[in-house]
Simulated assay, not measured.
Amino acid sequence: MSHPLVSIIIPTYNSKAYVQEAAASALSQKYKSIEIIVVDDGSTDDTRDLFPEFEAKGIRCFYIDNGGASNARNYGLEKSSGDYIQFLDADDILEPTKIEKQLNLMRLHKADLCYSPWVIFENDISDAHKQFRFSYLDHSLKRTGQEIMISYGMDNWFILTVAWLVKKDLIEKAGFWNPAKCPNDDGEYFSRALFWSEHVVCCNEVLSFYRKTANDSLSKLNSETKIEASYKSFKQIESLLLTCRNDKLMSYPKRMFYMQYKLVKSNYPDLAKRAAKNFDRINAPSFLSDKIYYWWFINRFGLYTGTKLYTLLKPIWGLLKRN
């Protein structure tokens, strides 16, 4: 059997404290037909001092002007030669058999994408704790990318960047990452990848570790700029999915607008109202329909007002039930 090349692309920005561990996890892969590419996105913490050590181990290193993680990933893609791509953020870690197990499964099922469960950790993977539930964990099942997105919307879950292995042919269809800095850059990119993917498989083992850091500010919706960038990415995803004319598929962007509403309603009420209006506007099913009473209020009064009324009346119902 041939051994296709897998490119592991590691964008890094001021992550000198972590990137050695990420690179070591790439070097430790049991599957050996790999190339590792580190792209320093204009770091100011002397990350480049690690380059000689990395290059001595066969890692290809590049320094570019700061343009954001997506821009650095695109640069890595341009420099890559692999038939498959593993995106690895500088503070995350791969389990040693990740590439081997996912690649074998993809080749067996002729899949474009493979994902697996991951766990979250803060300081050391020995302290890792499990992420929430996943869907479609059966090794033998092949799903389309659009079926995965419907499940995102209806089952309320998602897949992190580190959990994927991507066939290069699919990237050529989906295009490069959007270089604009955005908390949802991975969501927007993998929505395009899923849109074009005919076969997605799951390797049902924990094969990656996502580090939660105190300085992970880009992923937090703590400014109007970040909220606006995420909102625009949701609209882009919605526009793409509208071309399919599938109401169930629209449950995915509907869920995203709900999540933004929920995350920003305390500090940015006007932007929360905008997200809620978009949730109401999309005529699609929702995972919230399982919450029968809450769903009734949302359908009757809209997400923003319905949530307020439901929250106000819920304690009264509790008293009535006890009496």
Rank of each mutant, 00 (worst) to 15 (best):
V264P: 04
A276Y: 01
R255F: 12
L271V: 06
Q260E: 15
A284Q: 00
R274F: 06
K254D: 01
K273H: 08
K254P: 02
Y258V: 04
S289L: 07
K265I: 14
Y261C: 09
A276C: 08
F279N: 03
R281W: 01
S251G: 11
L263R: 15
N278I: 01
S266F: 09
S266T: 13
Y261E: 05
Y268E: 06
P269D: 11
K273P: 02
V264L: 08
A272C: 14
F279E: 02
K262T: 12
R274C: 11
A276W: 01
S266K: 14
L288M: 05
K265A: 15
F279Y: 14
K273L: 13
F257I: 09
S289N: 08
S286C: 05
F257A: 02
A275K: 10
Y252V: 03
N278L: 08
Y252F: 12
M250P: 00
Y261N: 06
F257N: 04
M250C: 08
S289P: 04
L263I: 04
F287A: 06
P253D: 04
S289E: 12
K265Q: 14
S251V: 03
K273I: 11
K262Y: 15
K273M: 10
D280C: 07
N283S: 10
K265C: 11
K277N: 13
Y261S: 08
F279Q: 00
K273R: 15
M250G: 01
Y252Q: 01
D270W: 13
K262R: 13
A276H: 06
R274P: 05
R255A: 05
A275C: 13
D280P: 10
M250T: 01
A276M: 09
K265S: 14
N267H: 09
S251H: 05
K254V: 00
A284I: 09
R274Y: 09
P253R: 03
N283I: 04
N283Y: 07
P269S: 14
Y268A: 09
A276F: 01
P253E: 02
K277E: 11
K277W: 02
A275Y: 05
L271A: 12
D270R: 13
K262N: 13
D280A: 06
K273W: 10
K262F: 15
I282M: 07
L263T: 11
K254M: 00
S251T: 10
L271I: 03
D270T: 12
I282K: 02
M256D: 07
S286I: 03
R274G: 06
L288A: 04
N267F: 11
K265D: 14
D280I: 03
M250N: 04
M250Q: 07
K273S: 11
Y268S: 05
